[in-house]
Simulated scan of single mutants.
Amino acid sequence: MLKEIRPAIVFLIALTVITGLIYPLAMTGIAGAIFPSQAQGSLIERDGKVIGSELIGQSFTSDKYFHGRPSATVGPDPQDPSKTTSVAYNAANSGGSNLGPTNRTLIARLQADVDKLKQENPSAPVPIDLVTTSGSGLDPNITPEGAFFQVPRVAKARNLSEDQLHQLVNDHVEDRLLGILGEPRVNVLELNLALDQMSIGQ
């Protein structure tokens, strides 16, 4: 009996070591050597301090900055840890709201967001990505249309010309991967960092 079981046990242990230890360590090492920035989380540094990642959105609320997509992520409620509360871009709890298109809470929130954005820029239609959350709740990008829509507000808050900001947005539009995959997009954190640099240079 032991003679038959021993090969199976040895095989199980060998596969566990290979697939659970050797392979992950090898892939981590190779990734770190070939793609060091991506392997470390695509972190963005400013003055030697990590201020964010290219892959995870951040909450910008000031009129002086471009805003990202709404985030539906949640976290523990500080008042009652047994409950959750809205925590924008919580990378520890990625996910969408899972509210359907007929949900009254979602409809009310969308309408309030659209009304608020229309006050910012009444002459342009509100881009859909500025009022809808992504599936992950962590999307760091918006559409070029979403960025251009916000130009009048940011220009007014920073006392910059709209033409300057249009050019800044254009400079930060990332094309489709290989020209066919995905959609054109603007990374909000990188755009806002460039905006700060532009304001310093004024």
Results as ranks from 00 to 15, higher is better:
residue 84 T to V: 09
residue 144 P to M: 14
residue 4 E to K: 14
residue 84 T to A: 12
residue 33 A to G: 06
residue 142 I to N: 01
residue 44 I to G: 01
residue 185 R to N: 12
residue 173 V to C: 06
residue 149 F to W: 08
residue 7 P to H: 02
residue 131 V to F: 12
residue 89 Y to N: 14
residue 104 R to W: 00
residue 9 I to P: 13
residue 179 G to D: 05
residue 24 P to Q: 06
residue 90 N to Q: 11
residue 126 V to S: 08
residue 151 V to L: 08
residue 116 K to N: 10
residue 57 G to F: 03
residue 200 I to F: 03
residue 182 G to R: 02
residue 196 D to S: 12
residue 20 G to F: 06
residue 75 G to P: 00
residue 141 N to V: 07
residue 171 D to I: 02
residue 82 S to V: 07
residue 45 E to M: 15
residue 41 G to I: 12
residue 65 Y to R: 07
residue 158 R to G: 05
residue 96 G to K: 11
residue 129 D to Y: 09
residue 72 A to E: 12
residue 87 V to G: 11
residue 5 I to V: 15
residue 144 P to A: 15
residue 70 P to F: 14
residue 51 I to M: 08
residue 99 L to M: 10
residue 146 G to M: 07
residue 166 H to G: 09
residue 202 Q to P: 15
residue 200 I to H: 13
residue 91 A to D: 11
residue 187 N to K: 09
residue 93 N to R: 11
residue 48 G to K: 09
residue 156 K to T: 10
residue 31 A to Q: 09
residue 98 N to E: 10
residue 94 S to Q: 15
residue 53 S to C: 13
residue 197 Q to C: 01
residue 99 L to H: 05
residue 25 L to H: 10
residue 112 A to H: 01
residue 51 I to D: 05
residue 37 S to Y: 01
residue 39 A to C: 02
residue 133 T to L: 04
residue 9 I to C: 05
residue 187 N to S: 00
residue 156 K to G: 03
residue 40 Q to F: 00
residue 176 R to P: 11
residue 144 P to H: 08
residue 178 L to T: 07
residue 77 D to S: 12
residue 17 V to C: 09
residue 15 L to D: 02
residue 128 I to R: 13
residue 132 T to E: 13
residue 198 M to N: 02
residue 159 N to I: 15
residue 134 S to L: 06
residue 79 Q to I: 07
residue 148 F to A: 10
residue 140 P to A: 03
residue 42 S to K: 03
residue 24 P to C: 02
residue 56 I to M: 07
residue 176 R to G: 13
residue 74 V to W: 08
residue 10 V to F: 05
residue 61 T to S: 15
residue 131 V to K: 07
residue 153 R to N: 05
residue 194 A to L: 05
residue 157 A to T: 04
residue 93 N to C: 09
